[in-house]
Amino acid sequence: KRYRAVYDYSAADEDEVSFQDGDTIVNVQQIDDGWMYGTVERTGDTGMLPANYVEAI
């Protein structure tokens, strides 16, 4: 699945990823209600991200 960031996010922990509004997130997997795991296409960084900061595309 592919998602697009709708807000900027700065990683708060080493297992999270930072991204900017408009970034595409690929290979996304749902972890639980609030978190997903995926790769930021622009940077190649992979990690956890907050589900409410992205939307499906």
Results as ranks from 00 to 15, higher is better:
K1M: 13
K1N: 11
R2A: 08
Y3S: 00
Y3N: 00
Y3C: 05
Y3E: 00
Y3V: 06
V6M: 13
V6R: 12
V6L: 15
V6S: 06
V6A: 06
V6G: 04
Y7A: 15
Y7C: 15
Y7L: 13
Y7E: 08
Y7V: 09
Y7R: 15
D8E: 10
D8Q: 10
D8P: 14
D8Y: 08
D8N: 12
Y9F: 06
Y9A: 01
Y9K: 03
S10E: 14
A11T: 05
A11P: 06
A11F: 03
A11V: 02
A11C: 06
A11L: 03
A11G: 08
A12G: 10
D13Y: 12
D13V: 10
E14T: 12
E14N: 11
D15P: 06
E16A: 07
E16D: 05
E16V: 06
E16W: 07
E16P: 00
V17S: 02
S18L: 01
S18F: 03
S18A: 05
S18R: 03
F19N: 01
F19K: 01
F19T: 03
Q20I: 14
Q20V: 14
Q20G: 06
D21T: 15
D21L: 15
D21S: 15
D21C: 15
G22V: 03
D23V: 03
T24L: 14
T24K: 06
T24I: 15
I25A: 00
I25E: 00
I25R: 00
V26S: 08
N27L: 13
N27S: 08
V28F: 04
V28D: 01
V28G: 07
V28K: 03
Q29M: 13
Q29C: 15
Q29T: 14
Q29N: 09
Q30P: 10
Q30R: 14
Q30Y: 14
I31L: 12
I31D: 05
I31N: 06
I31G: 08
D32L: 11
D32T: 14
D32F: 12
D33E: 13
D33Y: 09
D33R: 09
D33W: 09
D33S: 11
G34D: 15
W35C: 06
M36C: 07
M36T: 03
Y37M: 11
Y37D: 03
Y37S: 07
Y37L: 12
G38N: 02
G38M: 02
G38F: 03
G38V: 03
T39Q: 09
T39M: 08
V40Q: 03
E41I: 08
E41W: 08
E41M: 10
R42G: 05
R42M: 04
R42P: 04
T43R: 01
T43P: 02
G44F: 04
G44D: 05
G44K: 06
G44E: 04
D45Q: 14
D45K: 13
T46K: 09
T46M: 09
T46N: 06
G47N: 01
G47M: 02
G47F: 03
M48V: 09
M48P: 01
M48T: 07
M48N: 08
L49H: 02
L49S: 00
P50S: 05
P50C: 09
P50W: 05
P50K: 08
A51R: 11
A51P: 05
A51G: 07
A51V: 10
N52W: 10
N52R: 14
N52P: 09
Y53I: 06
Y53K: 09
E55A: 10
A56N: 08
A56Q: 12
A56P: 14
